[in-house]
Design a binder for these strands. Structure first.
Lengths: 207, 207
DNA sequence: GAGTTCTGGAACCGATAAGTTCCGTAAACG
DNA sequence: CGTTTACGGAACTTATCGGTTCCAGAACTC
């Protein structure tokens, strides 16, 4: 961090700091709708009801704006604390699903960034730290809860297992293009994740 | 298909049909290296040792060239027949891994297209039919082999299960950016896919 | 009020790339 | 041969977009 110098009360009209968040939000929306390359600074400014000059006074380039827009997504992020401890892994997953609808937009923004990641290391780093890792970490946190309860199959590797739900969700949204409906999320839990974590095959529903 | 009229032997120098495949191959390579938006027609032509006019005489636009380039990837695709029936699912997966190194480029091309899919339905359809479905279908074919041998847990849903390996591979290459090394592929088989398919937890390696 | 900085909006600049045209040459026809 | 079409290569047109600059007005300090 920089040294905490109190700003010496600049001259002239003060910058309207409320615009920052509105511009970042507009950037995220344009990003999710159009992707990095198709998103234009003019469209971001227009969506925020701002002029391009106002945007460029805050961020030096499109790349920096996008990096910041991604970096500031954290406020809306799910954290482990927000998922109640229901006493069982399957219960926790059900609780997580109930909160999950806040999350789809993040993966849509991901879709617009995937093609960019190999060519923009700094962006890749931010995406990884703020979008990917928190989601894998959340799953891992639930697994560790379950481990403390003794629900997990002994000797299982949590790192690989924790990537399974994010991978399945990303695949569905980015590659196969299908919606993230409840049916899919339930089956992801019941048929894939729970059996892997506990080593116990869940009885299949009778047709 | 169009009516099979024999071409009435056009006047002038005949078109060099060997250039078609070379241009498509150049397009695939540029696509994998740069992604859809960064790929330029000039670069494709140069890589194929051709002029832009030669490219545009064959394809009316960049979009059509890319669609065709993806559609013609099938020749190099793995098919179920190429994976020997080793008598067990885990053996088949080992055999598949031995062939797999032909396949990474396809997912890299995917990475360059992901951001484009929501805005180009025709491209999305071709990508789905030629890249995604064959790979899911291959896994599904191996599962059906295993089912005939009685290796599978009864009542399991093959459709969802068959998407797990493609999803994990896509996630690793597109999202997390890690390499598709042997260690990962082995653990994907042993710790994720086999337990899910057979319902039998594989003993973990002793540390 | 004078001076300064911010605001949205619009005009502007420069680069990049899709797509077209033209060149000189090569390869087919009659 | 002459005509026609394809070839690689380069010049060209056109449109878009990142980024800058200017404007008239607003909001602040002194």
């Amino acid at each position: 961090m920089t040294t905490m110098t109190m700003e010496p009360r600049r001259l002239g009209r003060p910058r309207d700091t409320t615009r920052d968040a509105e511009i970042l939000q507009a950037a995220r929306e344009e990003l999710a709708e159009r992707g990095y390359e198709r998103m234009t600074m003019a469209a971001v400014a227009a969506r925020a009801g701002a002029g391009k000059a106002t945007v460029y006074r805050r961020w030096a380039s499109k790349a920096e704006l996008v990096i910041d827009a991604v970096a500031c997504t954290a406020d809306a992020a799910l954290t482990l604390e927000k998922v109640p401890d229901t006493g069982s892994l399957s219960g926790d997953l059900r609780a997580l699903r109930a909160l999950k609808h806040h999350d789809e937009g993040v993966w849509l923004a991901m879709a617009g960034l995937v093609s960019e990641l190999p060519h923009a290391p700094e962006l890749a780093s931010v995406v990884h730290d703020r979008l990917v890792r928190p989601r894998v970490g959340l799953v891992r946190g639930l697994l560790e809860r379950a481990a403390r309860r003794g629900e997990l199959m002994p000797g299982i590797n949590l790192d690989l297992l924790a990537t399974v739900p994010p991978a399945m969700i990303a695949y569905r949204l980015l590659v196969s293009g299908e919606p993230l409906d409840t049916d899919f999320l339930v089956r992801l839990s019941d048929e894939i994740f729970m059996p892997l974590a506990t080593g116990v095959a869940v009885p299949q529903p009778v047709g």
